[in-house]
């Protein structure tokens, strides 16, 4: 009897998305504290918060519909699914061939629609406001994200993430100038989609400037915990997609234990460096006005299109 290594590693990858994502968030917060000359709560603070929230009793508004109660579970499932599709440790996993990058963008869009609907469901002003802002950012960020992915798809002649990773990491190293554009655009989309600082402040307490937090104002206890967890998995997902697209070195192609360990180590280092980088960006920049966001994401879209164009000019 052969052991189905593929499924085991697939399972490990899912567990890693669940377990590592709060720690990754904690690491980013910790780095931000260091950069601001504060001591910081430690890397494990998000776990403590999740545990605390899970022990509390949920309070629901009287006019909440089933959609409102369903959304946290749905969102959590969407992000977990996205985390399993991306090749984090190895490329030849059974789930990887299920969907390509366009489906991945679709999953994120689906999650966003549900969250926005749930935010509008209760009918409070802040929920409405947050949902509208989120949809505005979403419709500006998605074309940019798709263009980035198309640039990479042009380079590797496939929209499947595993093929993209394989072409980039397991062939000879070539400098792709279009990747520089795509990377800059992807970073901007990442900041906008995960409501990080230049676009939205994840730790704000001022309702008027909230985007992501405003949508979750009515949630409490286990629902809130799931939503927080889901958004940290989303951040993790975006980072591992970025790693798969731009720095795929270290991701194993077979399912040997040694190459897996190497892939795990590489992922850990990449996450640590990228988390510090994100904290640095957040420490150095100020949150911009909401009307500057179209400008910001318009630039991201332009960079992504430029990437595609330079691919045809310089690399075709």
């Amino acid at each position: 009897m052969t052991i189905p290594y593929g499924f085991i590693f697939q399972f490990i990858q899912l567990i890693m998305a669940l377990v590592l994502s709060p720690m990754f968030l904690g690491w980013i917060n910790q780095c931000r504290c260091w950069l601001q000359n504060r001591k910081g709560p430690g890397v494990f603070q998000p776990y403590r918060q999740l545990v605390k929230l899970f022990y509390k009793d949920a309070v629901l508004a009287e006019n909440a519909s089933p959609l409102f109660r369903m959304t946290p579970y749905f969102l959590f499932a969407c992000m977990c699914l996205a985390g399993t599709i991306v090749p984090v440790l190895a490329t030849n996993l059974p789930f990887a061939s299920v969907a390509d990058v366009i489906v991945l963008v679709g999953i994120f869009a689906l999650a966003r629609v549900f969250l926005a609907l749930a935010a509008m469901d209760i009918g409070t002003a802040f929920g409405n406001l947050g949902a509208r802002r989120e949809m505005m950012i979403g419709f500006l960020a998605e074309p940019a994200l798709l263009m980035v992915l198309f640039t990479l798809a042009f380079i590797s002649h496939s929209t499947n993430l595993t093929t993209i990773v394989d072409t980039l990491s397991h062939t000879r190293f070539i400098i792709y100038p279009s990747m520089a554009f795509a990377m800059a655009a992807y970073l901007m989309v990442l900041l906008a989609e995960n409501s990080r600082i230049p676009v939205d402040n994840p730790s704000t307490h001022l309702e008027l400037t909230m985007i992501h937090e405003a949508m979750m104002l009515e949630y409490s206890a286990r629902h809130l915990a799931l939503l927080e967890w889901a958004s940290s998995i989303k951040l993790y997902d975006y980072f591992v997609i970025g790693f798969a697209l731009f720095v795929p070195w270290g991701i194993a192609s077979g399912s040997h234990l040694s190459s897996m360990l190497l892939a795990f180590l590489a992922l850990f280092i990449k996450l640590a460096v990228a988390g510090f980088g994100l904290a640095l960006i957040e420490a150095l920049s100020a949150k911009m006005r909401i009307f500057r966001v179209p400008e910001f994401l318009g630039t991201a879209f332009m960079l992504a299109v430029l990437g595609t164009l330079t691919h045809f000019l310089l690399e075709a």
């Binding site: 000879r172 070539i174 400098i175 100038p177 279009s178 520089a180 554009f181 800059a184 332009m302 960079l303 430029l306 330079t310 310089l314 690399e315």
Partner: peptide, 22 residues
Amino acid sequence: MIPLSSQLLNLLAALFLLISFA
């Protein structure tokens, strides 16, 4: 296979365009 110098030149050209846009 494109030689390395050409690749570097292409990269610099891309940077040039990026700076123009900036």
